[in-house]
Design a binder for these strands. Sequence first.
DNA 1: CTTGGAATGTCAACAACACTGACATAAAAT
DNA 2: ATTTTATGTCAGTGTTGTTGACATTCCAAG
Lengths: 167, 167
Amino acid sequence: MPESGVGGGENLLFLTDEQLRKGIEAMFFAYRGFTADPDRILAQHNYGRAHHRALHFINRSHGTTVNNLLSVLGVTKQSLNRVLRTLIEDGLVESRVGRRDRRERHLYLTEAGRALEAELSEAQRARMRAAYRAAGPQAVAGFRQVLEAMMEDDIRQQYLQLRDGRP
Amino acid sequence: MPESGVGGGENLLFLTDEQLRKGIEAMFFAYRGFTADPDRILAQHNYGRAHHRALHFINRSHGTTVNNLLSVLGVTKQSLNRVLRTLIEDGLVESRVGRRDRRERHLYLTEAGRALEAELSEAQRARMRAAYRAAGPQAVAGFRQVLEAMMEDDIRQQYLQLRDGRP
DNA sequence: CTTGGAATGTCAACAACACTGACATAAAAT
DNA sequence: ATTTTATGTCAGTGTTGTTGACATTCCAAG
């Protein structure tokens, strides 16, 4: 007698409310760990998570415009502007007027900006590396699969474009 | 010629900085999806994420004390107190003086509190369920493994105790 | 029984980070 | 010439977190 269910004969015990709850709590506690190391570094510099996110994505896409950054970060321009202003004042980010379209501002990390970004991202990668190593490659593949399925649809598109090398 | 590396012959390409970066960004975008549905419901009730978290863990451990809740949530008592006060005023949470130790307050959800908690957690579970279903049971196992490895050590202990049915 | 300390609550002040709304400027697009 | 777009800025508001100080209650140890 064949088993019923999605995925061709797998049992569906992993979809019980109990299993889902464990996943939800794991997500909550893991995210704390995920941000813990950068948070400590940021605190020393009197910055917050918003600064980290800006540095990360500017580093990721050199010369990105403010509008691009806004759509990736999903915040208002007022909120982003406050963060960008401090980063520019502190000499971590440089804002250049666009050549083709002079309304646009293109954002670049300075030497100091790259240094802080490297410090933050190395701390975050170290934890991720340890987790990946402990869990193994097959677990990592599953980890990414579930996370991608969890994103909102429009965000997933951005993520996928970003994931597969697009400036 | 035997391959070198941890884990008995696996290649370590999943530990490159590039792979780690993808995991970091996946974590960032996925967490947005993770909180998106509850956030929308909370906004209608003029509550925030902190209220959700309190409701979740009170529901999870009926009669828990304020101190227990503090250590799980990892915030200051002042911050938690503000949230608890509104929940109690709004009749979603009941605070009872401890019988054995009358300094302690034991926290319970009222009927209304259970209703909102159920609404929030069902929304969150629905997204998690869809993601689990899309990714499959093996991916889910990996997802949980990596998340658990990512937690801070003391938090992981709490999570594991909580995970395996402890009131 | 008195005292010390733990658990809790409250007040005040402050900061980070998000939001809305309104307005200004410059430049591209029509 | 007018509209739209990209950006920046000012003002106000709300949630959530933080410290610090202080009061209350009450168990427990001396």
